[in-house]
């Protein structure tokens, strides 16, 4: 799950979602002007949706000359102070993913539905969107929220990189995968933890981690413990960085953030993971994940 700001209509994705209204003639794709898409929408209005596309429903058309092969049109509800329409908004995301599944799309780009003309408060819209996508079983591998304004981007980033969504990402993996990780961690020998450095002539020294240790790192990535977020800024500000002290009492999402800072950090500075082995940060991460698994995730039962 990614967040980006920019022009949804030029996004590289198998399908993009056009937040429209029941007339099927609104939204960013039609504003850009794509004749084949418009023609199909008109035809849909004349046939299947003579009374308009109901709020919360979705329908697909060709992508015409757009990068995306398909455009999925969904009618976003207008926000109301007096009535809770969040089920309809969640339905827009769920139905769009269902349609994408039927098309065989591997990647889908969403706008921040209902936050433009729909007037939906950004924080609330982002929370509903991320929860709905998270709760939908789908074969779509990549979901990106492409927002129009920097404010919407900030709101979606906050939710996508928030405690709840990170924990939900961890919980989405089956228990046996987690047991695989913990077994791999238990299998680390003192030799795996003592990192040797190569010093070839005429080249900067570099660390040589063992294959068993890399397996642990790979599993962290595969289990979504490594998450896309601004780990540079976070590690600068967070008291958990670098040693992981206090991680036991922090949300499990912080274990993921700290792990991200170390795993990603290694790409920029050789030896970052070695320091995490030395200062106890990696062990604190493993302990916190293990406790989350047995006590919060319920995988121990």
């Amino acid at each position: 799950m990614l967040v980006a700001q920019g022009d949804l209509t030029t996004r590289h994705a198998d399908a993009i979602v056009n937040a429209t209204d029941p007339s099927l003639l609104g939204g960013a794709v039609h504003r850009r002007g794509e004749p084949a898409v418009l023609a199909e929408c008109r035809a849909l209005r004349a046939s299947t949706y003579q009374n308009g596309l109901p709020f919360g429903r979705a329908v697909a058309t060709t992508g015409g000359e757009l990068r995306a092969r398909w455009v999925i049109h969904t009618a976003g509800p207008v926000w109301s102070a007096g009535e809770d329409r969040s089920a309809l908004l969640a339905s827009c995301y769920r139905e769009s993913l269902r349609i994408a599944d039927g098309l065989g799309a591997g990647s889908v780009a969403f706008p921040a539905i209902s936050t433009g003309a729909g007037g939906w408060p950004l924080d609330d819209a982002a929370r509903i969107a991320v929860r709905a996508v998270r709760a939908t079983a789908t074969r779509v591998a990549e979901v990106c929220f492409v927002t129009f304004t920097p404010e919407a981007r900030a709101a979606f980033t906050e939710v996508v990189t928030g405690d709840e969504n990170i924990a939900a990402g961890l919980a989405a993996h089956p228990a046996e995968r987690w047991r695989e990780l913990f077994a791999a961690v238990d299998g680390l020998t003192p030799a795996d933890r003592a990192v040797a450095w190569e010093t070839p002539e005429g080249q900067l020294p570099y660390p040589r981690y063992t294959e068993r240790f890399w397996r642990v790192v790979r599993l962290l990535a595969e289990l979504d413990v490594v998450v896309p977020f601004d780990w540079g800024a976070w590690s600068h500000d967070s008291p958990l960085h670098p040693g992981g002290r206090g991680l036991a009492g922090a949300p499990v999402a912080d274990a993921a953030r700290l792990a991200t800072a170390y795993v990603r950090g290694e790409r920029f500075c050789d030896g970052t993971l070695e320091s995490g082995l030395g200062n106890g940060a990696l062990d604190a991460i493993f302990d916190r994940l293990r406790r989350w698994f047995t006590e919060e995730h319920g995988g121990g039962r």
Partner: peptide
């Protein structure tokens, strides 16, 4: 590169 992604995804027959 947008262009390189485009040539990989869209073949001769693509409406793109």
């Amino acid at each position: 590169s947008d262009y390189i992604q485009d040539i990989l995804v869209h073949d001769t027959e693509s409406p793109f």
